[in-house]
Design a protein around this nucleic acid. Sequence first.
DNA 1: ACTTTTTGTGACAATTTTATTACACGCCTA
DNA 2: TAGGCGTGTAATAAAATTGTCACAAAAAGT
Lengths: 233, 233
Amino acid sequence: MNRQILVVEDEKPIREMITFVLEQNGFNTIEAEDYEDAKSKIVEPYPDLILLDWMLPGGTGVKLAKTLKQNEYTRSIPIIMLTARADEDDKVKGFDVGVDDYVTKPFSPKELIARIKAVIRRVSPTALEEAIEFHGMKLDPVAHRVSINERALDLGPTEFRLLHFFMTHTERVYSREQLLDNVWGTNVYVEDRTVDVHIRRLRKAIAGEGHEDFIQTVRGSGYRFSGKIKMSL
Amino acid sequence: MNRQILVVEDEKPIREMITFVLEQNGFNTIEAEDYEDAKSKIVEPYPDLILLDWMLPGGTGVKLAKTLKQNEYTRSIPIIMLTARADEDDKVKGFDVGVDDYVTKPFSPKELIARIKAVIRRVSPTALEEAIEFHGMKLDPVAHRVSINERALDLGPTEFRLLHFFMTHTERVYSREQLLDNVWGTNVYVEDRTVDVHIRRLRKAIAGEGHEDFIQTVRGSGYRFSGKIKMSL
DNA sequence: ACTTTTTGTGACAATTTTATTACACGCCTA
DNA sequence: TAGGCGTGTAATAAAATTGTCACAAAAAGT
């Protein structure tokens, strides 16, 4: 359930609502508000899926889709169109340019997530269970194994889920509450500081190879998992 | 034997008749009643064969076959089409999308089993009978024998099936429920914990040669059969 | 430098999960 | 029908995990 989704939507409230929902469901998001912005963000590493508003300023939504689907390198990125109009013609046009699915506004978060997962599953049935690698750390969700430079780690269930989350959500700060929501699950009552303890345990578990610095404390905000280790000055 | 067959058929009586016949003949079955249901059940570990009704609601039988045969990961799963109509055109279309065989309703259980075995034999000539070897352990499905470094083991039927499943599904964590589904069969009511007991019995049975560590407990998730034995520090 | 706020750490008890043992029931077979 | 298996379940023991607390350490603010 990893990877990045680019949300192209000009209306900020809607865009933020969407990204909120996505993040709640364990996806990483990138935002873009118009054609140019989107294009500048569709670079390597390419997003794993694009949510594209039909009604971009200047009606450039379809244009963008068409462009992407005609380009050799971006052709394979799945696109889900968002539209306010349940207009059949629009749908046809959308599918004509190779769009993978269609979601009509307003939509429920549940529906959106379901569609996204369906598309991802269709495009790459194994994407959700492929091993993740990050700077010499490898996490295999299927075998339920973690190794760091070929050395196997022994993690408890929670530590494993925490690391899994971090490895799929790198270079970004998460508050303790967000971590609780994502790793422990929503509607569980656990103290904020419990996160600290598990961070500590995880750090300890991966210590010895230099990678313990990957888990960074961002004072006042939370924690971040990053390959760019912070240098002392 | 002990292979999994996915039965995709919308009419419940027929579906149950088929699964009954299959289970009688030593196959494990999974059931699906429509396109979506089927798709959601075609995940790792992939079924070894799919029995697919031609006339799914919405005429999606062929569509499903086509989809599967176009996907890199599911392409190799053999598909047998079931149809009520002995229509030559349909058959041709079916073969066009890469279906492996065709069975016309009504069919006798005997015929169905025969076709299934034929397809399996064609796809993987030795799969049904060839001995499996894994790190010095040898399991012969035909002779129903297991040996470890040439020393014969004495296993009960369930232990044998469990080990057989493990030897054909290594390096991967299976929950107790998954193990129940695969080794005991779907739609059997057995306690989760029963798996523990059989794991214990199997461990005991293969003990003495170091191989008992192959069956690994993954706390909170299930069990894993692996050649990479966990080192203590 | 002193105070306040935030984070790191080690210890611990409660809880959860798994291992192990014991036992009863059903099914063959003799 | 008695005796042996093989199985599932329940009871109990053992082990691992987890959330919190108390206090130390570090950082930020005054």
